[in-house]
Design a protein around this nucleic acid. Structure first.
Lengths: 154, 154
DNA sequence: AAGACATCATTGCATATGCAACGAATTTTC
DNA sequence: GAAAATTCGTTGCATATGCAATGATGTCTT
């Protein structure tokens, strides 16, 4: 009679699930602040941050750097352009590319938004204490040992 | 002239973003296996696992235990019932509740599926090596210090 | 025991999402 | 240098999602 060990599986101990839960928890906490104070979503936030950081980028750049799908980036940018936070223009030499930049208004919003993000990061570090370093190391481990560019074949 | 330190923000060093990326990476890797071999999604998987583990539960139970929204659980269950993997019946004493259980077919699928999940967990542990324990401790830290039931007020 | 209140599951609706297909622009190949 | 192949961004479409509202049932208050 060796039969139902399978049924003993505990979701709470399953790393992919645990990661999904903690990621969702922090994201929601943060997203609420963005939404309440600035009316932006997480996709909005990611695009804006990348543009603030890079100074300017194409849709493809953002897709690669910010872990969002092509079409998601495209639609997010359309929304942000409509709101006047970013500007689209054609790339000088390669006309397939769309060159995206923050408008003055967008830059101004980032001046208010980024300190809030920095404060959130500080709060996370403070609350986690010694666990913070462990978490970050663990994350680095996953990033390096589950790199889609290298290993996503098996 | 003290002005644009804000623009120095690096998304790659922002813990909520990093967590979202690693969670998504592992989830996609796993979801592909579920989908290819069993035709189920992550919401499907979560419900099935909880039912395998608990023996039976209501929509509310699942919502609480599996970090999914009410309506998402409800629609997932409808799909799984249609596919013949779970059964719905009325709760004996409280007729507001829907009592959900695996069908024989559902149980059979879980017998094939759970070893795959266990193998995935083993793979994660093996690949991460010493970082695995760090990651798990970090996750525990977030779970305990960012508990929505306790703190989601600020 | 009746009305007020709370809980449970489902559904309607507006929006968001992923994927494939497309048109335009560029690069590669022969 | 022209045709084939590739890259880029957008859009159509089917599905998924979150939230609020609903209807059904249970519990609480007095």
């Amino acid at each position: 009679m060796t039969d139902d060990p399978p049924t003993e599986f505990d979701l709470m101990a399953f790393t992919p699930y645990r990661l999904a839960v903690v990621a969702q928890r922090l994201s929601e906490l943060l997203a609420r602040q963005y939404r309440d104070r600035f009316g932006i979503s997480i996709p909005d936030w990611r695009v804006l941050v990348h543009l603030a950081h890079s100074g300017g980028a194409s849709v493809r750049d953002i897709e690669a750097r910010v872990a969002m799908e092509k079409s998601k980036v495209s639609r997010t940018c359309k929304r942000l352009e409509t709101r006047g936070l970013i500007a689209k223009r054609a790339h000088d030499t390669d006309r397939r590319l769309v060159h995206l930049t923050l408008t003055d208004e967008g830059r101004q919003m980032m001046r208010d938004l980024l300190p809030l993000a920095a404060a959130f990061q500080g709060e996370v570090e403070a609350r986690l204490g010694a666990d913070f370093a462990r978490l970050e190391q663990g994350i680095d481990g996953v990033l390096s040992r589950f790199d889609p560019a290298v290993t996503e074949t098996d």
